[in-house]
């Protein structure tokens, strides 16, 4: 168990954490306002990847155009889902919306299955994105770096949006207390729509990076990362974007450390480990590691 070994798996953990982080940001922005565990978030991500794939491979569009078009379409899909499946439930209990999101998730997965089949399809990025670098025993690719950078950009952009813009402040108000916000004249529907648009758009970018890193896409690809993003949000502290990112890195690193350091007969327990980690955090810090004790958005 040399130092360089531990260093390599740490880097692997950071790479995985970056992927979780970028999914978790989009996840938290919706969760922070609606308190909705959006099981369908991961599936919007998958839809976005498939759209990119179709535009790139079948329509022959350049990659940037495909991504932008996919973001636009997915934002539309996200808003449509919000309008049809979530808005009518605005006054319902948390569990009802949870079920609704579960149904939407099943719906999207099965539609993808019907359109594209269950076969895993290769998702190849242009060479310069997957170009690898080696420092010592540590390997990484351009896409790893880009993931880190985009995560940081998202974080800063959202921070500015939430603190400097009118709609951002309205979002924070809704997240604190939706009823009070409505009384203050804030259009809650508008705020939720903006959150969904941002969340869905980010989901596509996250999906692009996820599929690019693992080079494949299939209809149920997004479900597990979606769940892990939720774990990350819980561990970091619900409502805190920075917390969600931190939680994602914690999950990524501990997951890989667990798989890399435990005896090999336990490596297959790694998903169980992540969920247990979340339960333990919930028990001792119900507001997450970085959530404020009052449960407010930081």
């Amino acid at each position: 168990m040399t130092l360089s070994y531990i260093l390599t798996i740490l880097v692997s953990g950071l790479k995985l954490g970056a992927i979780y982080a970028i999914v978790a940001i989009g996840y938290s922005i919706v969760y922070g306002i609606l308190r909705l565990i959006n099981f369908a978030h991961g599936d919007i991500m998958t839809v976005g990847i498939y759209i990119i794939l179709v535009l790139m491979n079948r329509a022959g569009l350049p990659i940037y155009v495909s991504i932008l078009a996919s973001v636009a379409i997915s934002v539309f899909v996200g808003l449509l889902i919000e309008r049809l499946a979530y808005r009518p439930l605005r006054d319902a209990t948390e569990e009802t919306t949870l079920i609704s999101s579960l149904a939407v998730s099943a719906l999207l997965q099965n539609i993808l299955l019907l359109c594209f089949g269950a076969q895993r399809q290769p998702f190849m990025l242009p060479g310069f994105l997957t170009q690898g670098h080696t420092i010592g025993s540590v390997n990484f690719t351009n896409i790893n770096i880009i993931t880190f950078i985009i995560t940081a950009i998202f974080l800063v952009a959202l921070f500015l949006l939430l603190s400097k813009t009118k709609i951002g402040i309205a979002m924070r108000a809704c997240s604190e207390n939706m009823k009070a916000a409505r009384l203050m004249g804030i259009s809650v529907n508008k705020v939720v729509m903006v959150a969904f648009a941002i969340g869905s758009g980010m989901a596509v970018i996250a999906g692009f990076l996820l599929a690019g890193e693992y080079k494949t896409v299939y209809p149920s690809l997004g479900f597990v990362p979606g769940l892990k993003a939720f774990c990350a949000a819980v561990i970091g502290g619900i409502g805190s974007l920075g917390g969600a990112v931190a939680g994602a890195f914690i999950i990524g690193v501990t997951e890989i450390l667990f798989a890399g350091l435990m005896p090999t007969s336990y490596t297959a327990y790694r998903d169980a480990f992540v969920f247990l980690l979340m339960v333990v955090v919930l028990l001792f810090r119900p507001n997450g590691l970085f959530g404020s004790t009052k449960g407010e958005r930081s």
């Binding site: 569990e95 939720f230 327990y269 979340m278 028990l283 119900p286």
Partner: peptide, 25 residues
């Protein structure tokens, strides 16, 4: 039972993952 609302739902989902991992391994 210390968790509330949909946290509880997700903790019970975690239970499924753990039970499955034990059965498989």
């Amino acid at each position: 039972v210390r968790t509330k609302g949909h946290y509880l739902s997700v903790v019970t989902l975690a239970l499924i993952v753990v039970v499955r991992a034990v059965i498989d391994n």
